[in-house]
């Protein structure tokens, strides 16, 4: 299975590879969620959904269902948070 934003742990970062769903809202792209950009998982809401990410300087909350469509490569640098 492909790694997506939904698989990030808190504080973990990744580089966006592609969108596995063509109809992802354009708004996400406009906020800077573009292939090649770094994305960081900042917080997870108490019921595990939605999640709160930082991408390209934009801090946004999205739902898990949408996060599942953003594929990425995790940056493994053992960030300590």
């Amino acid at each position: 299975m492909e790694t997506t934003v939904a698989h990030l742990k808190r504080g973990q970062k990744g580089i966006i590879k592609e969108f596995t769903e063509n109809l992802l809202p354009i708004k996400l792209l406009e906020l800077g969620c573009l292939p090649g950009n770094v994305i960081e998982l900042v917080q997870v809401a108490p019921l595990n959904d939605p999640i709160y990410i930082n991408v390209n300087g934009s801090h946004i909350a999205i739902r898990r269902e949408m996060a599942l469509h953003i594929a990425l490569d995790i940056i493994e640098d053992n960030m300590v948070i």
Partner: peptide, 8 residues
């Protein structure tokens, strides 16, 4: 869809 900005 749900895309909410978290401002400073």
């Amino acid at each position: 869809f749900f895309v909410v900005e978290m401002p400073n």
